[in-house]
Design a binder for these strands. Structure first.
Length: 652
RNA sequence: GCCGGCUUAGCUCAGCCGGUAGAGCACCUGAUUUGUAAUCAGGGGGUCGGGGGUUCGAGCCCCUCAGCCGGCGCCA
């Protein structure tokens, strides 16, 4: 039997030889370093016998991707073993590898506490130190079920019953501890780096991800190839925590939330400046792109929501108001008028479209609104600015003909990518979600709309993937995910074709032939919501906003009170040039002022003392640099004003 | 909504085994006129998230409600 190695060398072995034996035969050091192997490209255990000619490669720590996957997977098993050794009554379920680590779900009556983590980690290290061999067997399903019934592991029984009939049931042993697992695994527990993993947190998780099922306890861990990598990752997590928008929102005095209005933002002056800078920018971009800005009511009678279908499908997420409109108590006391705060703007936009008869000549008609929406999000789902109950969408609806979908999609993608680039995000991905099982509209119109969206995406040259069957029931959609400065992805933009709402709400236009026809409605947003996008922007920039967005763009700080008059003049000159600037005339040392305004992440501090008064200059210190630049006042104002010009205006 | 944790001064946090609340920063007052990340001194400030209970006595123990945090679920 011939085994071909990655360098092309072919060696002869007797059938039934294992990867471990081959590695040891190649060299003793490789035998030791071997973690797993690939037989004809398939990652598997070193202990698997090889029956026929094959290409074999030995996986070691140098194969980073595979090695980390194996380590994390073995960590899951080692942890589960540790937990069951410490608390034999705990039932095991599943424990997959995830980004940077793993988790394992347990069923245990007592909650795990953080103190338990130390005990579990200690036991894990003992298991690792024992260097227990990992072995595997394939069992038939009846034996496996009987085994798990006898060991009283009901979740494992359920898992086996869910495995399709022809798949083998693979069992693994880490020492004496046994688990159902697809594998592969390391050769022995000692191959898990004992100092490069850490248990992170315990959290509830529903069995099989279904909220009707029992809630299990999920323990999360992270694992790396070395302690240095683990430490590096922990440092990265600390850095990420520092740029948390909730923390920065408080530190920079941008906004707050309080319990009398959960999920509703109180914007403070500096936060509102930031919001307005973004809103003003978006308004200019939309105006320049052929949108008409409108404004629609926030409190709307249930009749409209019934017509749109929201009352039936979305009611539990709507804020409902009941007003007693009877003239007094007595006979009309039951005449309650029921309204809802709008959770979406679309039905209101159709009302504007429906005023007056529309011609094909009016299409495409692009109606935009910075629409204030309210949704009763469940209590556990709110998160700072990222998920709120009251928010403002950069919403617009394009009413157009089927033939216009492609063109509108193209120009939307162009606008969106330009906006993202201006706001400091270079990369984004597109996901195209196509027709679901249950849907409205004919196949012909779905064919057309999906093709139009895909053609536009292709033309844009942006990476995209197709999510089959994930479209809304009313039409296909594009979702736009942008990547922030630390590599996290955020879904912000959306573009959805809708064949249903125009029908339900009776939107129509007159064709060239003089007949009435239904327009297609394109729902679209670039930021998604201002609140959420500002959260993303704050985190992306770690609070150090680019000059054009910064709430306070410049502070003029005096060094002595002799400079007060001149400082006021400098601040006035900056304001006159359109900058958000102020003077700090407090009786404090310049060190103190620099420290304070730097902590407030003001992009430019202009220090003025006797020398500057004399020379009519300013000493500019930019955030993040220690040095200063001395410039004549006029030049400094011009330079800052130029830099503070929003990117769209700078292009014009 | 579910599981777990948390909630003490404006902010960040300390407060043992239940014995009657503390620090730093911020704020106010005074002194100081200062050259690029904290000048000095003094002062005021807390129904310990709300409600209920146990106890001679509760910030600490128990129940309950709310909010927040971490996940899960949800996000037509």
């Amino acid at each position: 039997m011939t085994i071909t190695l990655p360098d092309g060398a072919a060696r002869t072995f007797t059938a039934g030889v294992t990867g471990a034996e081959i590695a040891a035969a190649i060299s003793p050091s490789l035998g030791k370093a071997a973690l797993a192997c690939k037989i004809d490209g398939r990652l598997t255990d070193l202990s698997e016998p090889i029956a026929a000619d094959a290409a074999l490669s030995i996986v070691t720590m140098k194969d980073r991707e595979e090695a980390l996957g194996l380590i994390r997977h073995d960590c899951a098993h080692v942890m589960a073993r540790a937990v069951q050794e410490l608390w034999p009554d705990v039932k095991v379920t599943i424990g997959p590898v995830i980004e940077n680590g793993w988790y394992y779900d347990f069923d245990r009556a007592e909650p795990f506490s953080d103190e338990d983590f130390a005990a579990i980690e200690k036991r894990m290290r003992q298991i690792i130190a024992a260097r227990d061999p990992v072995r595997t067997e394939v069992w038939d399903r009846a034996r496996a079920v009987a085994h798990y019934k006898s060991t009283n592991e009901p979740y494992k029984v359920e898992l086996i019953e869910a495995i399709p009939g022809d798949e083998p049931i693979r069992m693994y042993w880490h020492g004496d501890w046994q688990d159902l697992c697809r594998g592969p695994h390391l050769a022995h527990t000692g191959q898990v780096p004992a100092d490069a993993f850490k248990l992170m947190k315990v959290a509830g998780a529903y069995w099989r991800g279904d909220s009707r099922n029992k809630m299990l306890q999920r323990i999360y861990g992270i694992a790396f190839a070395s302690k240095a990598e683990l430490d590096q990752h922990l440092t990265m997590l600390e850095e990420a925590a520092k740029r948390d928008h909730r923390k920065l929102g408080k530190e920079l005095d941008l906004f707050h939330l309080q319990e009398e209005a959960p999920g509703m933002v109180f914007w403070h002056p500096m936060g509102w400046r930031l919001y307005r800078a973004l809103e003003d920018y978006m308004r200019r971009r939309l105006n320049a792109s052929g949108y008409h800005e409108i404004r629609t009511p926030q409190v709307v009678d249930r009749k409209l929501w019934e017509a749109s279908g929201h009352w039936e499908n979305y009611r539990e997420n709507m804020f409902i108001t009941e007003i007693d409109e009877s003239t007094g108590a007595g006979e009309h006391a039951n005449e309650k008028r029921v309204n809802a705060l709008k959770p979406m703007n679309c039905p209101c936009h159709v009302q504007i479209y429906n005023q007056g008869l529309k011609s094909y000549r009016d299409l495409p008609l692009r109606l935009a609104e910075f629409g204030s929406c309210h949704r009763y999000e469940s209590s556990g789902s709110m998160h700072g600015l990222m998920r709120v109950r009251g928010f403002t969408q950069d919403d617009a609806h394009i009413f157009c003909t089927e033939d216009q979908i492609e063109g509108e999609t193209k120009s939307f993608i162009a606008l969106l990518s330009s906006v993202y680039a201006d706001l400091g995000f270079d990369g984004f991905d597109i996901k195209l979600s196509t027709r679901p099982e249950t849907r409205a509209g004919s196949d012909a119109i779905w064919d057309k709309a999906e093709a139009a969206l895909e053609a536009a995406v292709k033309a844009a040259g942006v990476p995209y993937q197709i999510d089959p069957g994930e479209g809304a029931f009313y039409g296909p959609k594009l979702d736009f995910k942008l990547t922030d400065a630390i590599g996290r992805e955020w879904q912000c933009g959306t573009f959805q074709a809708d064949f249903v709402l125009p029908e339900r709400l009776g939107a129509e236009y007159v064709t060239p032939e003089g007949e009435k026809a239904r327009p297609v409605m394109l729902h679209r947003a670039i930021l998604g919501s201002f609140e959420r996008f500002l959260g993303i922007l704050i985190e992306n920039h770690a609070g150090r906003m680019p000059l054009w967005l910064a709430p306070r763009q410049a502070v003029v700080a005096t060094i002595t009170s002799e400079a007060d008059g001149y400082a006021a003049e400098v601040a006035a000159a900056l304001s006159a040039a359109g900058l958000r600037a102020e003077a700090d005339l407090r009786n404090e040392k310049i060190n103190y002022k620099v420290r304070e305004w730097s902590a407030a992440k003001v992009p430019a501090i202009l220090a003025v003392g006797a020398k500057e008064v004399e020379a009519r200059s300013v000493a500019i210190r930019r955030l993040g640099s220690n040095g200063q630049t001395i410039l004549p006042l006029v030049e400094a104002v011009a330079a800052l004003a130029a830099e503070a010009t929003p990117p769209d205006l700078a292009r014009a």
